[in-house]
């Protein structure tokens, strides 16, 4: 029983990380049709930004994390404005540019901070444990799950209670018609990039807490699982991403524990394959 609880909470924590990366990825793809390979870079900017603010500026964890998240959002906005925006008529080229950016970005982080992982300044209480139903659970799991739930709630508020959210939801469905109503949908693209970048950067902060360190390649490996989550959840759906992130996190955690390391990842891909064969549009049924 206690193993089950620990595995579930750890799987949910992992799912929380995936969700933070996948939600922005899904919105960006759904609205702007951009498959954003540079999204892992926003994650890394958040993680390194937090580390830098804590280590060099001596800020506490929360203000440092705020700096990291702000930098992640800023990076995303700059990428959208400078690199993606001129290419909206050339969708394949957009993918290519984000691929180039992801490779160059990782190399740049490596040049700036070294190839070796740096120790992440996580708050002391995340290293302690709490007993839940007989299981000794590290506190960082609760942080991960709590933050992801808060982000999910905020995203839903944004999407369903604001005019920008209304434009985003409509744009995911039919972008041309949104412009034909006199709305400049490009501004919504930038907003979505900013939100996605901030969420990914927050994911980077939490990945730093969870893994204990930050390395240049971390964003890319999390990104691959976030892609899987997005495809399983259905592109453009935040709720679908949340559901798929939970499924992927739990499947990965349980199979890794009961089979072997590596089997977890393989079974996630198996889940992806099964979902795609049964419902090519993903769990939420929208076609990409």
């Amino acid at each position: 029983m206690s193993t089950l609880v620990l595995l579930s909470l750890t799987g949910l924590g992992l799912g929380a990380l995936y969700f933070l990366v996948a939600s922005g990825l899904s919105l960006i793809f759904g609205l702007a049709d951009v498959l954003n390979f540079a999204h892992g870079l926003f994650l890394s900017v958040g993680a390194y930004g937090t580390w830098w603010a804590a280590d060099r500026l001596g800020l506490g964890f929360v203000p440092a994390a705020a700096v990291g998240v702000g930098l992640g959002a800023l990076a995303a906005v700059l990428v959208e404005l400078l690199l993606i925006r001129p290419l909206y008529a050339r969708p394949i080229d957009q993918v290519l540019v984000t691929v180039g950016l992801s490779l160059a970005g990782v190399a740049l982080l490596q040049a700036g901070f070294g190839a070796d992982p740096v120790t992440f300044p996580k708050p002391a209480w995340t290293e302690e444990t709490t007993t839940v139903l007989g299981a000794t659970v590290p506190n960082d799991r609760f942080l991960l799950i709590g933050v992801a739930l808060a982000v999910l709630a905020l995203l839903q508020l944004f999407l369903h209670r604001t005019r920008f959210g209304l434009i985003v939801r409509a744009g995911v469905e039919d972008r041309a018609m949104v412009t034909a109503l006199g709305i400049n949908v490009r501004i919504a693209f930038t907003v979505v990039f900013a939100i996605g970048g901030a969420a990914a950067a927050l994911g980077g902060v939490l990945a730093g807490v969870y893994y204990g360190d930050v390395s240049p390649g971390q964003g890319t490996s999390l990104l691959i699982f976030a892609f899987i989550v997005v495809v399983i959840g259905g592109m453009g759906s935040v709720a679908g991403s949340a559901l798929a992130a939970v499924v992927v996190g739990l499947v990965q955690q349980f199979t890794s524990y009961y089979a072997a390391a590596g089997v977890g990842e393989a079974s996630v891909v198996l889940v992806l394959a099964m979902v795609l064969l049964a419902r090519p549009g993903g769990l939420t049924g929208r076609t990409a």
Partner: peptide, 24 residues
């Protein structure tokens, strides 16, 4: 002008397939 700016000049468009937003 881009589409949204043309529409803001005072055009209303009801397309052939209605194009209402189904999930809204």
């Amino acid at each position: 002008l881009p589409t949204h700016a043309i529409v803001r000049r005072g055009l209303g468009y009801a397309p052939e397939d209605r194009n209402v937003f189904a999930s809204l």
